[in-house]
Design a protein around this nucleic acid. Structure first.
Lengths: 134, 134
DNA sequence: CTTGACCCTCTAGCGACTAGAGGGTGCATA
DNA sequence: TATGCACCCTCTAGTCGCTAGAGGGTCAAG
């Protein structure tokens, strides 16, 4: 069984950087593994699963605190998963709000850019629009 | 003429926090103003205009470095404003990319959330989807 | 036995602020 | 005149999620 992994192997297997793994251990997101005689971290299957979960959730944009919460919930397997649903919904809503904000912004920038007549800066509409109405 | 402003007044007039103004001065984005006898910063019209420009650009999502660049360009009034157009375009494109990324993310989260049948965590599809395929 | 890839700890840096400690100033009111 | 209070000052450290670097130790291959 290829049970034991060095930090480099774990990094490769999960698409995480070595430094990031050590960081996750430092902030208590990933449990500290055993050490080898030469003081190397030796990871096992459980770590691999845990880190994969973290990666996936992070890729979906969950914050570290949300990941922590999700993992805490995931470990209480007999409880209702409504709490999980709540976290996911909050996150989706936050993303939707961010999309709306950015869309509005892009619209403003579009208007700004369309107005550029590529003259001198002195009568540049973009600069004008940024400056106060003075 | 109400020419002179304390930092608090300037903050109020531009919708900026006092700390942020001091921070902008520290990083050289806003020039250091004169000081009063009691060592208070005393701002004038030019500062107000400068800070308003900064705020507006920041609200539109330009980075501090981009703001610096835009202000540098704005000061060379006889030059072509094509460079301004370029900065604005780069920024708009970056925002559009971010919107696309977030939209994809929101879609994934939607699928995840729709699958939640509100059972126990043991067979929660959200947790399942986050965990490795193991 | 040396080379080179990997691992270790510790510290500082990124962007753009924000918060707090510990103090000084300026003005109105009792 | 004293006092209270809002405002100002500097300096330092914290936020988030890593990332980079210095200065070393370990391990396996050739």
């Amino acid at each position: 069984m290829s049970e034991k992994l060095t930090i480099g192997k774990l990094a490769g297997a999960t698409g995480t950087k070595v430094e990031t793994i050590r960081y996750y251990e430092q902030i208590g997101l990933l449990p500290a593994p055993e050490r080898s005689a030469g003081n190397y971290r030796t990871y096992e299957g459980a770590h691999l699963r845990r880190l994969s979960f973290i990666r996936r959730a992070r890729d979906l944009g969950f914050s570290i605190d949300q990941v922590r919460e999700l993992m805490g919930l995931a470990d209480r397997r007999d409880q209702s998963c409504i709490a999980v649903d709540v976290v996911a919904n909050q996150h989706r809503d936050a993303i939707r709000r961010k999309i709306a904000d950015l869309t509005a912004l892009a619209g403003e920038l579009d208007a700004l850019i369309d107005s550029c007549s590529r003259n001198t800066v002195a009568d540049c509409r973009i600069i004008e629009a940024l400056a106060p109405s003075a």
